[in-house]
Measured scan of single mutants.
Amino acid sequence: MFYPNSPQTSPQLTQIPYGQQYAMMQRQIQQPYHPFATTEPQARLYPYHYQGPIQQEQGGFITQQSTAASPQYVQMRVTPVDQSIMSGYPNQTANGSSSSSFNYNIHPQQQQQQQQQQQQLRHHAMPVGSVPLQDDRYRKQLIVNYLAPDVTSTDLHELFSRFGELDGARIIYDKQTNMSKGYGFVYFCHAEDAKEAVERMSGYEFHGKWLKVGYSTNPLNIVPSNSSPYVHAGSRGAAG
């Protein structure tokens, strides 16, 4: 039997160049792979992502010199942007860049009308829970959420009447099932009393439920100042 490094198959040491006398086997001759043993700084910083320098080929596509990437890492192929796409944008300079302001050559009167329309939209648009300043009635009506099913309009009136005089209180019921929808409205005579009720009743436990109280901004629920107070009856038909 002959071994790869046996004296019968191995040459004389004098015939082997210096430095390879003890590297006779194939696994010894093959050098191990060192990912950080390279002179390129990109490979030292990113050993798993770097795959060699990027070269520009004919046709405008950018390719990489090395083989496919590892399945664990996804390499994105980048193509140059066609400058003709950006030619339609206004205020574009000769080098292809555009300024931040756009001039669509709008007539001054049209621009003024658009600004007025935007101001009107901001004036009428009102986020949930906010209180408008032009109508004091919005500051007097509250919406009470997360009410228990057994709470009546009379219970709601008695709960909030300790903060001040009320114009009314009612629970909203479903017309088909005649069941409470879980929320109601309270109408105060003074805005200061309503503000105190919002601050003190939010998070209050009532009939096993934690109440959420806020201003009601729905104009359909506003009680006119010259109208008669609501009837605080315990029956659902009268309260709904």
Rank of each mutant, 00 (worst) to 15 (best):
N5C: 13
S6A: 09
Q8D: 10
T9V: 09
S10C: 05
P11D: 09
Q15S: 11
Q15E: 08
Q15A: 05
P17E: 01
Y18G: 12
Q21N: 03
Y22L: 04
A23I: 13
M25D: 10
M25K: 01
R27V: 15
Q30Y: 13
P32F: 07
P32G: 11
T38R: 05
T38A: 08
T39Y: 10
E40H: 06
P41Y: 07
Q42E: 15
A43K: 02
L45N: 03
H49G: 14
Q51G: 13
G52S: 06
P53D: 08
E57R: 12
F61V: 04
T63G: 11
T63H: 10
Q64S: 05
S66F: 15
T67P: 06
S70P: 14
P71V: 12
I85C: 13
I85W: 15
G88T: 06
A94M: 08
S100H: 10
S101E: 06
F102H: 05
N103Q: 01
N103E: 11
Y104Q: 04
H107I: 11
Q112G: 13
Q113P: 11
Q113C: 07
Q113H: 12
Q114E: 06
Q114S: 09
Q114A: 11
Q115Y: 14
Q115H: 08
Q116R: 08
Q120L: 13
L121M: 06
H123Q: 10
M126D: 07
V128M: 15
S130K: 04
L133T: 05
D135K: 01
D136P: 08
D136S: 04
R139T: 08
K140T: 12
K140V: 00
K140G: 01
I143M: 01
V144Y: 04
N145Q: 00
Y146F: 05
P149I: 04
V151F: 00
T154K: 06
R162H: 10
F163Q: 01
L166K: 01
A169F: 01
I172H: 00
T177W: 08
T177F: 08
N178F: 12
Y183Q: 00
F185L: 00
V186N: 01
F188L: 03
F188M: 01
C189P: 01
A191Q: 03
A194D: 01
A194Q: 02
V198L: 06
R200N: 03
M201R: 01
S202W: 03
Y204L: 07
Y204P: 00
F206M: 11
H207S: 04
G208D: 03
G208T: 04
K209G: 00
S216C: 00
T217H: 04
T217M: 02
N218I: 00
P219M: 00
L220M: 12
N221L: 14
I222G: 02
N226M: 13
S227V: 10
V231T: 03
V231I: 11
G234F: 04
S235H: 02
R236C: 02
